[in-house]
Design a protein around this nucleic acid. Structure first.
Lengths: 200, 200, 200, 200
DNA sequence: CATGAATGAGACTTCATTCAT
DNA sequence: CATGAATGAAGTCTCATTCAT
């Protein structure tokens, strides 16, 4: 007697998710190019062939991951704008939540960064990643401009302030992932330090 | 008529340097794994075979680049400590020079970061890159501690301050390289903004 | 309530036949090597696993088809010899019936031809197909010799005449299957034209 | 000192030709689908990788072969029309030359037939092969119509006569290649037998 | 009886590296 | 010193076949 259809689609869904979860870790360690399908299969203790029943190739796996991350980023940016409080308070909220998010899943942001950076990535992946980063950049940029109007944030080229704040975030992320022991820190960094860059 | 020995070794030196210069750009775009020897040969308009007369394999090229960068970093760190002035002034000098350096050769720091990050890198490369970053980290860390003693720098876990300052630098670098147009900035960022993080 | 045994074996027989029927079309299009079990399953709207409950592997399906065709060929050859009339009349009858048969099931002869031709075929299949073709060749050959004795058929190397007649049949078959529109014909070809080759 | 450019391109040309020559035999035996690159490499006593320096994939090799054959076919058809003599004499010339050609290189026509038949072939290949066969079909068709006007050729649907003549050729070819011993013939078949089909 | 998820062997393809010239 | 044809070891991907349900 065959498995029921629901049973089958549940199994497929679980397997698909599991492949993505496993791949996040592997891609983060090696990057898209240096990751072999064999690595993912081994990490997930499954056959290589199985992976191809769910994804047509490596790139497709990577893309599925990026897309899954994206929805989270979109929400985050939107919620920040909808927070109660002054622009600076909204920005602080964004930094806080984003830092916490990244600190717990350091791999995610790195995969997006790779998608952005790596020239070997298919164009479509670039586009998805770009859109994602752009959303955060624009949100921060907008909040900084508003904060300057309300004199919470220093007078300075808002583009440069945005770049600096985001550089901190991204740099922290990279550092936290790869060289925590080198960075002489323990625990999630204090967002208030970043705020010092821009606070009036 | 055979070339003279000096002539030959001069040619060899030029060629070697040229291979390294070309490789920096190629590695920065694709990373070690995704870069093919053919890519380098093509970028330098030379045969693949020629490259093997100067380096035994791909990794050796990468390593030569990292080592070449290293000497610059070492000097920089040393010079910072030898600057006249207060600890904060020394730190400011370091940030200034380092930012300028990176701004003009954005690829260099990225290659070091890759060497640090990428698990596919041979262990030796990790070590070299680690040593390099460690030197900067330690220098900044030391200056921050000294600055706290002289009350130029805020009371705060010095490890965390170090992490934050370096995160800015590394994040700026990545951003500057890959997404300058996205970052709404033009020209080298203002180091004074980073100093705001730590200034008492 | 379990199905009765007869019911079961009836279902099995139907299914087996259906798999063979479907496979004929698929094999004819792609050949043994390029046909995937998945293709057959899809064409028959059944699962891949099911096919393996009836046949142990791809080759076995192919072989079952060839064997099924064989019995028809055997009968045809025998009946031709037993027809009333002169040798040429017997031959004409054979050509007529064979052409009609092929015209209606163009795939059959092609599968036999493939079995004969394709080096990737297992030896056993070669043997079966060879035996089949050989029977037709010998029958035609024999009738031609007899026809020459009765002066209905021209004096000429009987082997060559046989080859020519059969070449017509096989060529017509291939053409009819694949390029009918190219061949500018409509309807079953006129056997009398083939007879012209040999008629005294 | 590097090889001279001419030397290199001579080597490349030789190698390319050699790969094509070898592939003809292998493809003819197994067909496109069942032929592995490894088969060709082995038959030519070269590495698999080398083949990919000359052709991007199996299909490209096949196509190169078909195209090489095409030029020969084109010429043949044209020359037939330009022969001196009556339409039937032209046709006889065509059959003669074509039979001789095929008899000496039996694989060629088979590869074209495969390209026409096999559904797994890329569309482009179909087109090339179709064009080739179409040229011969049209030439024969035209000569038959002219021959009917001059009463050298029997009154009968010219399409059907064309089909029959070409069926003979193609059938002979297939037979000659695969089952010569079965066909009880020795030496090239007598074209005059085919002519009997159509001669008034 | 029937299904489709899963496996594993083997084919295709790429590329670092060698070597004759 | 320099070239590019050639190799061979991986890696990517496909598909016949198995097996739990």
């Amino acid at each position: 007697m065959p498995r029921s259809d629901e049973e089958n689609s549940r199994i497929r869904e679980l397997r698909r998710t599991s492949i993505l979860d496993i791949s996040v870790a592997v891609f983060a360690k090696k990057g898209l190019g240096a990751t072999r399908i064999a690595d993912i299969a081994e990490a997930g203790d499954m056959s290589q062939g199985l992976i191809y029943r769910y994804f047509n190739n490596k790139e497709e796996i990577y893309q599925a991951i990026i897309e899954r991350i994206q929805s989270g980023t979109d929400q985050l940016a939107q919620q920040a704008l909808q927070q109660a409080g002054t622009p600076l308070e909204k920005l602080r909220w964004l930094l806080e939540v984003y830092t916490a998010y990244v600190w717990q899943r350091p791999h995610f942001a790195l995969l997006v960064e790779q998608a952005l950076i790596n020239e070997a990535m298919p164009e479509e992946m670039h586009a998805i990643a770009f859109k994602q980063v752009d959303m955060i950049v624009n949100t921060v940029h907008q909040l900084i401009i508003e904060g300057q109007k309300s004199h919470e944030i220093i007078e300075h080229d808002p583009g440069e302030l945005t770049a600096m704040v985001l550089a901190c975030l991204s740099g922290l992320n990279a550092g936290a992932t790869y060289i925590p022991q080198m960075l002489k820190i323990s625990g999630q960094p204090d967002v208030e330090l970043i705020v010092r860059i821009i606070k009036a």
